[in-house]
């Protein structure tokens, strides 16, 4: 998801092409072409410009309702309902790929969650996240936590606050606990603050900084992040 206001202009995007199995978009206002996956302008008057990412999460509807009770959900077009498929991925898995990944450890259609922190890209296999729903990791000296809520629902955070690294471990189905005993919810916010910290009257509601997660096929993730490594490999 991208902010579509850039250099003082608000752009309106259309699908306009395919580049190595990702879509290209064209904006009405300048006629420039943009990579959907990276937000980068690759042709036209705005070549080189970079759209600013808007943070988004893949959540279940149930989770979205809990976190945003006043939130709104996009409705499908009534005459297109027959075209929407809830389980379209099994079909996609069988489609051919065009990028050679034979020199790497994963098959091209392996599903990975990718993050980029301080310039370093890392892929986490879906199977690994399913087996290990809370992963503490470090990318370029930034401590992160990946927290799987089951299936596609995954959030990543920089697990540090006021310069202190948080050592998080599962507490119950809904919370992580840090070394001092504070509980953190799935939004990445402290909900029950340990006694030692509660004395500090200046402490407001504290939340970790979210890290964008991209669910992708390995071949595609690697095509756009050639320097990526794979967690645990």
């Amino acid at each position: 998801m991208w902010a579509r206001t850039i250099q003082g202009k608000t752009l309106t995007f259309h699908l306009a092409g395919i580049h190595n199995q990702n879509f290209l978009m064209r904006d009405e206002e300048t006629g420039s072409f943009w990579q959907q996956v990276s937000g980068e302008c690759i042709a036209g008057p705005m070549t080189g410009a970079q759209l600013e990412r808007v943070h988004s999460d893949e959540l279940t509807v149930a989770r979205f309702r809990v976190e945003s009770s006043a939130g709104q959900v996009l409705l499908g077009e009534p005459d297109r309902v027959g075209s929407y498929e809830r389980d379209w991925e099994p079909g996609i898995d069988k489609l051919p790929t065009v990028v050679d990944t034979s020199d790497s450890l994963l098959p091209p259609r392996a599903l990975v969650a990718g993050i980029v922190v301080s310039g370093q890209a890392r892929a986490y296999e879906a199977s690994r996240l399913a087996a290990d729903p809370v992963i503490l990791d470090e990318l370029g000296e930034v401590p992160v936590v990946l927290w799987s809520g089951g299936g596609r629902m995954l959030r990543a955070f920089e697990r540090r606050l006021d310069g202190k690294t948080l050592l998080l471990a599962p507490a119950d189905a809904e919370h992580l606990r840090d070394a001092e005993g504070s509980l953190w919810d799935f939004r990445g916010c402290a909900v029950k603050v340990a006694a030692a910290k509660a004395d500090d009257a200046t402490a407001g509601p504290s939340c970790m900084t979210p890290v964008p997660v991209l669910w992708d096929y390995w071949f595609d993730w690697r095509a756009y992040n050639p320097e990526t490594d794979i967690y645990g490999r």
Binding site: V54, E58, L59, T60, S68, A70, G71, V73, M153
Partner: peptide
């Protein structure tokens, strides 16, 4: 309930 949405929040406004 288990359908997956892309959720975004800008200030108080949340859309999926």
């Amino acid at each position: 309930d288990e359908a997956i949405v892309m959720a975004v929040r800008v200030g108080e406004a949340a859309r999926a």
